[in-house]
Computed example of a mutant assay.
Amino acid sequence: MEVTGVMTAGESISAMAYIKGRRGVSPRQMKLVLLICMLVIGIPFGGWVSGSWTAAAMSVEFAFIGAWVGLLIIQRLASSSMRKALATRGQAYEQPLTLRLTPEALVYDLGDLKMTAHWRCVTDLFQTRKYWVFLVQSSAMVLPRRLFPTSEAEQRFIAEAMSRMTDAARARSPDAAVLIGG
C-alpha cells in the first residue's frame, strides 16, 4: 500500500514543531513563555525605572505589537529565501513523494532521497492538523494528509500502518488509534 503526491521544500517544518513539543518544549510554548516574561518582568521593571505604571504597560504593549510584526516579516522572508537558496543549489522546490508500506518496512521516497525504516524502528505515529508523522528512532517521515483522495483512503492507510507497527508503537499512537476506531 502506498500514498503518492508532491511535497514542497520546508513544508514539514510545521509538523516538526509538534515533534519538538512531544519531546520537550514546542516553539509555540517557547513563544508563550517569552510573551509572559515580557508582561511579568517588563511592566514591573518598566514601572520601577520610569516611575509610571501606565508608561510601562504601554511600552510592553508596543513591544508585543513589534514582536508580532517581526514574526510576520520573518515568515514572509523565510519562504522566499528558501526558494532562492534551493534554486541556487539547483534543487526543486517541489519534490515527488511516495510513502510505501511493505511487510518489512516503511519506505519514504522523496525526490532523490529514499529512506527505509524497519517496522521495529517506528516508535510513534501521530496526526497534526495537516500531516501524519511517523517517528523513526530520532527522525521523522512526514506525510501530508492532502495526499489522500478521501478520508476513507486515509483511514485504510493508517490502519494498515498501525497493523505493522509494534505493540509499544501502537500504544504511543493514540491519534492513529482514534482515526481507525481502535
Rank of each mutant, 00 (worst) to 15 (best):
W53D: 04
R89A: 15
A171F: 08
G47S: 08
A171H: 12
V133G: 08
V40F: 03
S12T: 09
Q29H: 06
I73Q: 02
V33W: 10
T98Q: 11
R129K: 14
R145I: 07
A140E: 13
G46I: 02
P27D: 05
G70Y: 12
A15D: 00
L86N: 10
F126G: 07
G10E: 05
A140V: 04
P44C: 07
L99T: 08
R83I: 15
T128I: 10
G90V: 12
P44G: 00
L39F: 02
I73H: 03
R22H: 12
F148I: 14
C121R: 15
L35P: 01
P103L: 13
G51L: 08
I158H: 08
A56M: 01
K20A: 14
G24E: 05
L77K: 06
I73T: 02
L34Y: 11
Q91S: 14
E61Y: 07
M38Q: 00
C121S: 15
L34M: 14
A169Q: 04
R100F: 09
G5N: 02
V178S: 09
P103F: 09
Q91A: 15
V60I: 05
R83P: 02
G181R: 12
L32H: 10
A67F: 06
I41R: 07
A9F: 04
I36N: 02
M7K: 12
F45V: 15
S151K: 15
V142T: 14
Q91T: 10
M82S: 07
I43N: 01
A15T: 03
A171C: 08
L179S: 02
V3Q: 11
S81C: 04
R83S: 11
K20T: 05
T8F: 13
T8Q: 13
A92V: 11
V6E: 15
A117K: 09
F45T: 13
R164A: 06
D167S: 13
L110N: 00
L106M: 13
S81E: 13
R120N: 14
P103N: 14
K20P: 02
L35R: 10
L32V: 14
A9N: 10
S59R: 07
S59L: 03
A168W: 01
F157T: 03
I74Q: 07
Y18P: 00
R164H: 12
V107T: 00
P149C: 11
F64H: 09
R100I: 11
G51S: 03
K130P: 01
A177Q: 07
E61F: 06
L147K: 06
G21A: 13
T54V: 12
G51N: 07
K31E: 13
A9R: 08
R22D: 01
L147C: 12
E94G: 11
